[in-house]
Structure formats: structure tokens, C-alpha cells
Lab assay of single mutants.
Amino acid sequence: MKVIFLKDVKGKGKKGEIKNVPDGYARNFLFKKGLAIEATPANLKELE
């Protein structure tokens, strides 16, 4: 799953980066803790 990092996550990504991460990791950790959001076309446009 492609995500946009909202905060730095040690060993995974830095704020503003767009990366592919495992689906479970994104849903169960990154999204729940507010560390990242899904890289949807709308979210990507908002980032620019």
C-alpha cells in the first residue's frame, strides 16, 4: 500500500515521503497512530 508519511518513522520514512509499505503495517500501526495517510489521488494533490 502506498502511504504518505505525516511524521518521521525511524527506519521506514520521513515526513512528506511517499512509500510502499505492507497493508497490515499501514492499517494497524501507521494509520492508527496518525503517522501516515493512504496515498490516494486526492491526498497526493493536497500534498503538492
Rank of each mutant, 00 (worst) to 15 (best):
M1Q: 05
M1E: 02
M1A: 05
M1R: 08
M1G: 03
K2I: 14
K2F: 15
K2P: 09
K2G: 06
K2H: 09
K2T: 14
K2L: 15
K2M: 15
K2Y: 15
K2D: 10
V3P: 00
V3N: 00
V3K: 01
V3S: 00
V3A: 01
V3G: 01
I4Y: 10
I4G: 00
I4L: 11
I4N: 00
I4S: 01
F5E: 00
F5R: 00
F5M: 04
F5K: 01
F5H: 00
F5P: 00
F5V: 00
F5D: 01
L6V: 09
L6D: 00
L6Q: 03
K7Q: 12
K7G: 05
K7E: 10
K7A: 13
K7I: 11
K7R: 13
K7N: 07
K7H: 14
D8E: 08
D8V: 04
D8Q: 05
D8N: 12
V9M: 05
V9T: 04
V9K: 01
V9N: 01
V9G: 01
V9I: 08
K10F: 14
K10Q: 12
K10R: 14
K10N: 10
K10S: 10
K10I: 12
G11D: 08
G11E: 05
G11P: 04
G11W: 08
G11Y: 09
G11S: 06
G11N: 09
G11A: 06
G11R: 06
K12V: 15
K12Y: 15
K12Q: 15
K12F: 15
K12S: 13
G13P: 00
G13F: 14
G13R: 01
G13L: 02
G13W: 13
G13M: 04
G13S: 05
K14Y: 12
K14P: 01
K14L: 11
K14W: 10
K14I: 09
K14N: 10
K14E: 06
K15S: 09
K15H: 06
K15D: 02
K15T: 09
K15I: 09
K15R: 13
K15E: 06
K15Y: 06
G16R: 03
G16P: 00
G16I: 01
G16H: 08
G16S: 04
G16V: 00
G16Y: 09
G16E: 02
E17G: 03
E17V: 04
E17N: 04
I18A: 04
I18E: 04
I18W: 03
K19T: 08
K19D: 03
K19N: 04
K19A: 10
K19H: 11
K19E: 03
K19G: 08
N20I: 15
N20Q: 13
N20R: 13
N20G: 07
N20W: 15
V21Q: 04
V21H: 02
V21T: 03
P22G: 08
P22K: 08
P22E: 11
P22Y: 08
P22L: 08
P22Q: 09
P22R: 09
P22H: 09
P22S: 10
P22D: 10
P22M: 08
D23Q: 14
D23L: 15
D23A: 15
D23K: 15
D23E: 15
G24A: 14
G24R: 12
G24E: 14
G24F: 13
Y25V: 06
Y25P: 04
Y25A: 05
Y25M: 06
Y25L: 08
Y25W: 11
Y25Q: 04
Y25R: 06
Y25N: 04
A26T: 07
A26R: 02
A26I: 07
R27H: 09
R27G: 02
R27A: 06
R27K: 11
N28P: 00
N28Y: 14
N28R: 11
F29H: 10
F29T: 07
F29M: 06
F29W: 11
F29D: 05
F29R: 05
F29V: 13
F29L: 07
F29S: 04
F29N: 05
F29Y: 15
F29K: 05
L30N: 00
L30M: 03
L30Q: 00
L30S: 00
L30W: 02
L30K: 00
L30A: 01
F31M: 08
F31P: 01
F31R: 01
F31V: 06
F31G: 01
F31K: 03
F31H: 01
K32I: 12
K32A: 12
K32Y: 07
K32S: 09
K32F: 07
K32V: 14
K32T: 10
K33E: 11
K33N: 15
K33G: 07
K33R: 14
K33F: 15
G34H: 09
G34F: 09
G34V: 03
G34R: 11
G34S: 06
L35R: 03
L35H: 04
L35S: 02
L35A: 04
L35W: 13
L35P: 00
A36H: 00
A36I: 07
A36M: 01
A36G: 03
A36S: 02
A36D: 01
I37A: 07
I37Q: 07
I37F: 04
I37G: 02
E38W: 07
E38T: 05
E38H: 07
E38A: 11
E38V: 07
E38S: 08
E38Q: 11
E38L: 11
A39Q: 02
A39H: 06
A39F: 12
A39W: 12
A39R: 02
A39T: 02
T40P: 05
T40A: 06
T40Y: 06
T40G: 05
T40Q: 04
T40D: 05
T40E: 05
T40V: 05
P41V: 12
P41S: 11
P41N: 09
P41M: 12
P41R: 09
A42S: 11
A42L: 11
A42F: 09
A42N: 11
A42H: 12
A42K: 12
A42M: 11
N43Q: 08
N43T: 10
N43L: 11
N43A: 14
N43K: 08
N43Y: 09
L44P: 04
L44R: 07
L44F: 07
L44S: 06
L44Y: 06
K45G: 09
K45P: 06
K45Y: 09
K45V: 10
K45T: 09
E46I: 14
E46D: 12
E46L: 15
E46G: 13
E46Q: 14
L47T: 08
L47V: 11
L47G: 06
L47Y: 14
E48Q: 14
E48S: 13
E48F: 12
